[in-house]
Design a protein around this nucleic acid. Structure first.
Length: 719
DNA sequence: CTGTTTACGATTTTT
DNA sequence: TCGTAAACAG
């Protein structure tokens, strides 16, 4: 018997015990959210709810696996067949059992790379933007299309609001969007966004289907609700609409996926969606020591009121966070590695992490770590399944499952010498329209490709386990691997062997294929023991370490330059910074290089500290500077204070920054109350006001110059 | 039509 | 500096 009262605090206990009816759990960072969900799962089972009646939707597959595993441990026996995973994974599992119209012959999931290739193909076919040098790149177009669908707004709208410079291409982009949609239908393909919309369409158009799933999943839990988008929210509403036994967990202060259509309003609106919702707030932090918590609380201070949150902990001991100021981003890498070496004397390697805003920012650190012989693993950035050789091998498998899968077909055909896009298409048409004569003749010309298709046919006829299929394909593909990548084929071959290992854990071939597209296989390599972690902040979500370092905390990098199109974007960057710092249990290091290397400026350019660290009260951290001779010097508090007098004394601890009014009114997200217009500057010209930087400066976006922070006295305001 | 060379352009975050 | 895309040559 589990003693819930003893194991949980009162708020956690309430959340874990309330099983029936709608429940919203606002869980601050490190407040034992996972623990609460785990105990709630265990309680459900103890109350006699069958595992298969529970649906657990999480942000990553890993998160749901961990929760289910821990609940099983708690119960002393496995928890059984709880349905769990991501929205996308769940959508796929339903859709493969009930294929939508037009997908009866097979259904392939496209990952990001597949989708981009398809889009490029459509663009070329339509001949749109040919020869136009400034035509937006495929990746950009893809981003815009996806954004429009995720936010469920008209493409023109999105362009107008978020990418004004592309507005001129509206017609062309709409045409490409249409072509892309047709292409997917024709070839039985679904991209990430389609999965969710198709599921919604299925449930809406077939009431008996909806009834079936409502009956089947009598209890629903949704994690990270602040990062759901509109469709996902509606799906929850549909599925829980009958019984209303639904719990949403999340933290409005940790919403960091607005860029892909996540809507914080969803979590704030949850009580309206399900009237009578019980709200439980978890505010005691069990993760971080007080000094770290003080600093993270200070980061949220600048945010609009709806996000205000002050966490507390009983872990009063602990060191002040460190702010380290290297001379440049290059020396920063050295200092990080030194710090890692130092920390390893206190902490296990797997308890140390380096976080950054974008994948490429860890480049120098990776080099230095390699030089120092410190092993690491990296999350975020390039994906395993994006590697060319993995895509090659998977194309055989996909073609086997879905004969219409044109991207897979093109990929294999394109690997054959003498075949380009045009020939590939001819071959595809010939094979699809079953004109054996034509096909035969063409294949004579390309015997290698004939063998490929023969293999696919042979595999299709047999009933093999996923591993066996992979092994056959691999044997066939190996010669081509050497031919295609003569320089580094051993490394790739090793990667493919891992792929076979992963396949061995599956019984269903199509599940294996879709999982690979839906989520990167967790690189649970053998000896992660002595590996430190490098990760983008996004990929670090939900994780925690004893020691965390955040690097490149300068203007244009963090906050990211291209993320600052709209004033409210800065708030998402702030929450991102908040998420980064709240990952730390004991040690937090903030690295603020004084200059960064940039091609544009022809070498090193001075960098301004990120607004998120610039505005921090000085007593919240200790500061270390790199001297020209190398080595770090501690800066004393009194000294800092004099240095700072000229540009605004830091606010005393109880002062509220410009945005926050003391009382936090209704939980409605208010966009910045200040109306920000345009201004002109003698040197930079006309620019858009982005943010007021108290007391007397403004952050201004000057076209061609980027973001600058400038004294009000030097600006001519437009009214 | 394909394969190679040259030139240019550019850098987020993810299911 | 790297990777992609247009231009060019076979």
């Amino acid at each position: 018997m589990i003693d819930y009262k003893k194991e949980l605090n009162p708020a956690q206990y309430e959340a874990a015990m309330t099983l029936d009816g709608p429940l919203l759990c606002i869980a601050g960072a490190g407040s034992g959210k996972t623990r609460t969900v785990v105990y709630r799962l265990a309680n459900m089972v103890e109350q006699g709810i069958a595992a298969h009646e529970i649906l657990l939707l999480t942000f990553t597959r890993k998160a749901s696996q961990e929760m289910l595993h821990r609940a099983g441990e708690l119960l002393g026996h496995g928890i059984g067949a709880v349905s769990g995973g991501t929205f996308h994974g769940f959508a796929y599992s339903v859709l493969r059992q009930h294929p939508p119209q037009g997908f009866e012959n097979g259904l392939s999931i496209m990952d990001g790379a597949d989708a981009s290739e398809a889009l490029k193909y459509c663009k070329d076919m339509l001949g749109v933007g040919k020869g136009d040098k400034s035509f937006p790149k495929t990746a950009t177009v893809m981003g815009m299309l996806s954004k429009a669908r995720n936010k469920e707004r008209d493409l023109g709208d999105i362009l107008q609001r978020e990418a004004f410079h592309l507005a001129a291409y509206r017609e062309d982009l709409c045409e490409i969007a249409g072509g892309y949609a047709r292409y997917k239908r024709e070839h039985g393909l679904l991209d990430y966004d389609d999965l969710l919309f198709e599921l919604e369409a299925l449930l809406q158009s077939q009431p008996e289907m909806l009834e079936h799933y409502r009956h089947r999943f009598r209890y629903i839990m949704v994690d990270e609700f602040q990062d759901t988008n509109l469709v996902q929210s509606r799906l929850v509403q549909l599925l829980a609409g009958g019984h209303r036994n639904v719990m949403a967990v999340g933290d409005d202060a940790q919403s960091i996926y607005a860029f892909r259509g996540a809507n914080v309003q969803n979590i704030l609106d949850f009580p309206n969606m399900f009237p009578g919702t019980r709200i439980v707030k978890l505010e005691e932090n069990y993760r971080s020591v007080q000094p770290v918590l003080d600093l993270t609380n200070a980061i949220l201070e600048g945010a609009p009121a709806a996000f205000h949150k002050t966490l507390f902990t009983s872990r009063k001991e602990g060191d002040l966070p460190q702010m380290v100021k290297p001379l440049s981003d290059l020396t920063q890498a050295n200092l990080v590695v030194n710090k890692v070496t130092e920390l390893r004397r206190t902490y296990e390697a797997r308890e140390i992490a380096v976080l950054f805003r974008a994948g490429y920012q860890s480049y120098h650190v990776e080099m230095q770590l390699a030089k120092a012989g410190i092993p690491f693993r990296k999350f975020g950035g390039v994906k395993y399944s994006d590697a060319a050789h993995v895509k090659d091998v998977m194309s055989y498998v996909r073609l086997m499952l879905n004969p219409l899968d044109l991207p897979a077909f093109n990929r294999l055909a394109g690997n054959v010498k003498g075949v380009g896009p045009k020939t590939a298409l001819k071959l595809y048409d010939a094979s699809r329209l079953s004109e054996p004569a034509v096909l035969e003749k063409s294949l004579k010309k390309y015997p290698d490709f004939g063998k490929d298709l023969a293999l696919v046919d042979a595999l299709r006829r047999q009933r093999l386990e996923p591993v066996e299929v992979l092994e056959e394909v691999l044997e066939h593909y190996k010669p081509r691997l050497m031919q295609l990548y003569p320089d580094d084929y051993p490394r790739r071959e090793h990667g493919l062997e891992q792929l076979v290992q992963i396949a061995a854990t599956y019984r269903d071939l199509d599940l294996f294929v879709s999982d690979l597209s839906l989520e990167d296989p967790n690189p649970e390599a053998q000896d992660t023991e002595n590996h430190i972690t490098l990760s983008t902040v996004h990929s670090a979500k939900g994780l925690e370490w004893d020691a965390v370092m955040v690097i490149d905390l300068v203007e244009e990098r963090f906050p990211s330059k291209q993320a600052l199109q709209k004033p409210e974007d800065l708030e998402e960057e702030r929450r991102l910074m908040y998420v980064a710092c709240t990952r730390a249990r004991k040690y937090l290091g903030l690295f603020v290089p004084a200059s960064i290397y940039s091609r544009g400026g022809g070498g090193n350019e001075p960098a301004m500290a990120s607004p998120f660290v610039r505005d921090l009260p000085v007593y919240l951290y200790e500061e270390w500077r790199e001297g020209y001779a190398g080595g770090l010097m501690r800066r004393e508090y009194a000294q800092q204070r004099t240095m700072r007098l000229g540009d605004g004394v830091p606010a005393p601890p109880d002062a509220r920054p410009a945005f926050g009014t003391g009382d936090s009114g209704p939980a409605v997200r208010t966009t910045s109350p200040r109306k920000l217009g345009y201004c002109t500057h003698k040197i930079f010209g006309r620019g858009k006001l982005v943010q007021h930087v108290p007391p007397d400066k403004y952050r201004v976006n000057f076209p061609g110059f980027g973001l600058k922070v400038i004294m009000e006295a030097y600006l001519n305001m437009e009214e």
